[in-house]
Design a protein around this nucleic acid. Structure first.
Lengths: 131, 131
DNA sequence: GCTTGACCTTCCCGTAACTGTAAGCCTCAT
DNA sequence: ATGAGGCTTACAGTTACGGGAAGGTCAAGC
């Protein structure tokens, strides 16, 4: 299978697949006699695996670790679970941070008339000289 | 005031302040005779303003727009409010996305024993050939 | 047999918002 | 005068790609 088709079935842009190869996340694909990348079933499974892990927010580095674990028939599931838990914790922190920023800003927005007049509690708050 | 002190009072690293100057977010600071950047009160207020806006998640571009509005004594507060609302909407989307990823992964984690054995529903799910 | 258009190739630049590092002045206290 | 710490510029690295140029390949159609 050539890269275009692989892109379709894996859900990853061809450009991204080449990128993954260039950074060593995946093994270099085989080549046809004319130099096109040729993918096997196993390669495609790997790319789908990567796509799913990435869609859950794992970084490339984390995906790399997951791939290693996936390919290790003897890994302890506790290792995978720990990695996943860490990622959930990271997401929790990000969610809390976003939520906090959102709450603060929402409060300011409520206080802002939002009409033609220039007075605006939002800018006033940003410009507060105390604090 | 020199950049080190400004960094302390504004909460922005000196490096970041230079960066903001380099991209044109702020006016180039004045200089002492020996070439050091010299900041006035107004510059410091601006940097604090930027720090607060950034801490609420506004992008540099958005901050730039906010600065323009801040410096425009005749702006309508509706403009500021619209910008802020847009940002809240962006954050809402990000929160929902993170939450969804987190929920999915949390479900998988619950199903994983996390012991010494290799069987792991998390990796199994990533590797599913259907879907 | 030749052209056309869809794919494929590599290579390099740009993105956001900085952070790290290097090499070299400036200032002040000892 | 010397050493520490702060300042300067400039360039590279980070994350995870996307855009676009210049050119090779392949199957279809005339």
């Amino acid at each position: 299978m050539k890269i275009g088709q692989v892109a379709e079935v894996s859900g990853l842009p061809a450009k991204t697949i080449r990128y993954y190869e260039s950074i060593g996340l995946i093994e270099p694909a085989g080549r046809t006699s004319s130099g096109y990348r040729a993918y096997q079933e196993r390669d495609i499974e790997t790319l789908k695996f990567i796509q799913r892990a990435r869609s859950l927010g794992f970084s490339i580095n984390e995906v790399s670790a997951l791939l290693t674990l996936w390919n290790d028939r003897n890994r302890a599931s506790s290792q995978v679970k720990a990695l996943a838990k860490q990622h959930v914790a990271d997401m929790d922190r990000k969610i809390a941070e976003l939520q906090s920023m959102k709450d603060t800003l929402s409060n300011l927005i409520e206080k802002c008339q939002g009409d033609h007049r220039p007075d605006c509690p939002i800018l006033n708050d940003f410009a507060k000289t105390d604090r």
